[in-house]
């Protein structure tokens, strides 16, 4: 994790996963969790007092669990609803992060969530980009916050 955005990303990200998706987060990942590849991702761009994007990447098993928990359903859930659930989680997480960054001052505009192709993922971080890893029983997630202006 780099301090490039000067924003405590982990607490907001962990709380959103826990309260919205009922997944219990840990900031200490096992070696096995750290090696899990990401199989899904979503990006939400925002504009306002600060501009940038928030990205959520997840390993296999996390998105089905998010979807089942949000819907209160058990068993296989339609892939379209899984994409919707991940998008909504990204949207809520982005909304909470940008609100926290400015303590309620100024209006942010969030773009609709955009699904990402995991084949395009790299580990590289841009300047002004922060990244936190979150472990769950179901796998791991990575949340990336990029700020294009300060």
């Amino acid at each position: 994790m780099t301090p490039s955005t000067a924003f405590p990303l982990y607490p907001t990200a962990a709380a959103t996963f826990e309260e919205l998706a009922m997944l219990f987060p840990s900031d200490v990942l096992t070696e096995e969790q750290q090696e899990l590849p990401f199989t899904a991702g979503v990006s939400v761009r925002f504009f306002g007092p600060k501009s940038g994007r928030l990205e959520v990447r997840t390993s296999a098993g996390v998105v089905p669990a998010i979807t089942e928990n949000m819907l209160g359903a058990e068993g296989a859930v339609d892939p379209q609803l899984q994409s919707d659930a991940l998008g909504e989680l990204g949207n809520v997480l982005c909304g909470n992060v940008v609100s926290s960054m400015t303590n309620g001052v100024g209006v942010f505009h969030l773009h609709p969530p955009r699904q990402l192709d995991p084949a395009q993922f790299t580990d590289l971080l841009e300047p002004n980009e922060e990244c936190v890893d979150i472990g769950f029983d179901e796998g791991r997630a990575q949340v990336r916050l990029f700020l294009s202006s300060r």
Binding site: T16, E19, L20, N91, V92, C94, G95, N96, V98, S99, S100, T102, G104, V105, G106, V107, F108
Partner: peptide
């Protein structure tokens, strides 16, 4: 998830309540 105090005030001025997600 709206956090803007100004926007939340506009909503409340129209007689609506506000609940923060989640």
């Amino acid at each position: 998830t709206e956090g803007s105090e100004a926007r939340i005030k506009r909503i409340k001025d129209l007689g609506a309540a506000f609940v923060h997600k989640p």
